[in-house]
Design a protein around this nucleic acid. Structure first.
Lengths: 156, 156
DNA sequence: CGTGAAATTCCACTAGC
DNA sequence: GCTAGTGGAATTTCACG
């Protein structure tokens, strides 16, 4: 895989913000003619730098005003247990992020729901299958920043 | 704003996964002919349900292997302080999520960086401007699930 | 090998039913 | 909501640096 030059990064920066932009505009913005710009985008897709293109939806319009971070501790550390837990949690559409952590907590989840009541249903579903040592929920009062745009300055 | 019927939700579900899909395929998938399907998509955009369309990049390919959750506590609670903190943190491109929380921690951040060393630089930048009471960093060992797809079952 | 211009094909979008 | 037609863009081909 070729390394990314300044032009590639400029392209990525723009596409991260708006993938709808016509190729002509994109090319102009990075001081290129449409074809070479298109070629670069193709290469970035083939190389897997650009994984896919998605529509972002407004949580408020979908009645999803509540964001909860759930930190989970367990004393079960067998592979079989993890596989079951993994499968169970991944299924839940309200869980939009799910990490295995180092340190105090074992897992961290971000859950989006319409209300506290709806969160309680998800919570019950979480603890239903796997036996968890400790589950602690923190509610977000305000979403100050939330972006899918990754920093590009570290690319090799 | 009209409420979302099953067809709208089917459209949203598909576009959340892949916004590149040609209108003809999308229409076929939801048992519609292209034009009415296109009309629905237009309306969803106008209503602000679909906010925008973005390219998702592979963090690994951008040398962003490390995810850190940073919980911040402060004893400064004035509006002026918050405004400064807000502005400072929002600027930092490595901070991809930033919430004001209820309960123990005051703020929660998700930071993506290439390495522990790079995180330390971000950390220093964080504590530089605003005086923070407590900053605790938790490292993600494994990203099990991370999706931009929101649950659609609660839409009114 | 990467870049710029022209030809073609395909798809978003409009109008009529 | 479906069918057909148009405009315009994305994609391929070819020539050049």
């Amino acid at each position: 895989m070729k390394s990314l030059d300044a032009t590639d990064r400029a392209i990525l920066a723009l596409l991260q913000e708006d993938a709808d932009i016509p190729m002509a505009k994109l090319a102009e913005a990075v001081n290129l003619s449409p074809t070479p710009c298109w070629r670069r985008v193709q290469r970035l897709k083939e190389d897997g730098v650009i994984t896919r293109q998605v529509a972002l939806l407004d949580p408020a319009k979908l009645n999803l005003g509540v964001t909860v971070f759930v930190s989970v501790r367990t004393n079960q550390h067998s592979q079989a247990w993890f596989d079951r837990f993994h499968a169970a949690v991944t299924q839940i559409p309200e869980v939009v992020e799910f990490y295995r952590m180092s340190g105090e907590m074992d897992y961290l989840l971000r859950v989006v729901v319409p209300s506290i009541a709806a969160y309680d249903a998800v919570y019950k579903r979480l603890i239903a299958g796997s036996d968890l040592f400790d589950v602690s929920s923190s509610f977000a009062m305000e979403e100050i920043k939330l972006t899918t745009a990754l920093p590009l300055d570290y690319a090799l």
